[in-house]
């Protein structure tokens, strides 16, 4: 028994070693750095205790970052889920060309955010961007806005582009899980006189609960890590209107040479990510208990 245990540990030790080197050590080092004043280059660091954390909570930009994260997460998760489930329900039917459309909808997911950002920065340009040109062409000049230059619209634009990019992923997740719902449930409901919309709301949506949870958690974590699009489209501006945790960490680390502050911000981001993950674990556990109850 003891030899078995030793052998078991030996088998998992390579993975554990990799995990320790590439995951645990950077996290611990980052927490360590967050208590120092350090430019990220010099060999020596000055211990400052929790000063970096105090500075972060005093920083007015933090309010904007947290607001942007919450707004971004809320709208992207809800709208992406709504569009994803709508398209999935549409394509799950045997419609001519549905395979083709499903693929087309998924293409933005595999596109590089840098390219997407560059394309949309041209589309949304104020004076000669295609969106404003189109609006002017159909007489809707009053709707032609300074999309990326006005704080009122910039975040909305990034949310819209993110939804455009990731709706295909939500659709595929819902689509795959819809295929797992036994058809006899729908047949029984039909026999009982349930209309299609009743079947959708009473059968499809509840049975896709695990997909909702997965998309919620992934959406929340994705919002927390949001970097590429705001960095390319607005550089976090104008005036921090689209600043997110990673863009601000990048600025602190590489433009302001404040590695200690950047690390403290990373730790805060990590704590938020852990809270979200904890919520995920709790939701899954609850979900599994429901399943157990259903199986009895």
């Amino acid at each position: 028994m003891q030899r078995r245990t030793i052998a078991g540990y030996m088998f998992i030790s390579p993975l554990f070693l990799l995990f320790a080197i590439f995951i645990i050590y950077p996290i611990i080092f980052n927490i360590y750095v967050s208590f120092f004043e350090w430019n990220g280059i010099r060999p020596e660091m000055n211990f400052t205790g929790i000063e970096n954390y105090i500075n972060i909570f005093k920083d007015p930009v933090m309010v904007k970052i947290i607001r942007n994260f919450v707004v971004f997460a809320f709208f992207t998760i809800i709208i992406q889920a709504f569009l994803g489930i709508s398209f999935a329900s549409f394509f799950i039917r045997s419609i001519k060309g549905s395979d083709f459309y499903r693929t087309v909808f998924y293409i933005p997911v595999i596109a590089t955010p840098a390219i997407i950002g560059n394309i949309f920065s041209r589309i949304l340009e104020t004076n000669r961007g295609q969106l404003n040109e189109a609006l002017r062409a159909i007489g809707l000049d009053f709707l032609a806005m300074q999309w990326l230059a006005d704080p009122k619209y910039a975040l909305g634009c990034i949310i819209a582009i993110n939804i455009w990019q990731w709706t295909g992923y939500s659709m595929l997740m819902y689509y795959a899980n819809m295929l797992n719902i036994p058809s006899d449930i729908y047949e029984a409901a039909t026999v009982d006189g349930a209309r299609p919309y009743q079947q959708f709301f009473r059968i499809t949506i509840p049975l896709l609960r695990s997909t909702h949870f997965t998309l919620f958690i992934m959406g929340a974590l994705g919002s927390l890590k949001c970097f590429d699009l705001p960095y390319i489209l607005t550089k976090g501006g104008p005036n921090y209107a689209t600043e997110f945790f990673p863009t601000y960490i990048n600025k602190k680390s590489f433009e302001l040479f404040d590695q200690g502050g950047a690390s403290a911000l990373t730790v805060i981001m990590l704590v938020i990510a852990m809270i979200i993950t904890l919520a995920q674990v709790m939701l899954y556990t609850r979900n599994n208990k429901d399943k157990e109850l259903a199986e009895r």
Binding site: S121, A149, D150, P238
Partner: peptide, 13 residues
């Protein structure tokens, strides 16, 4: 300055 100046880079926009 042009409208929307805050939304564009110097190089190369």
């Amino acid at each position: 300055f042009q409208d929307g100046a805050l939304g564009v880079n110097m190089y190369v926009d």
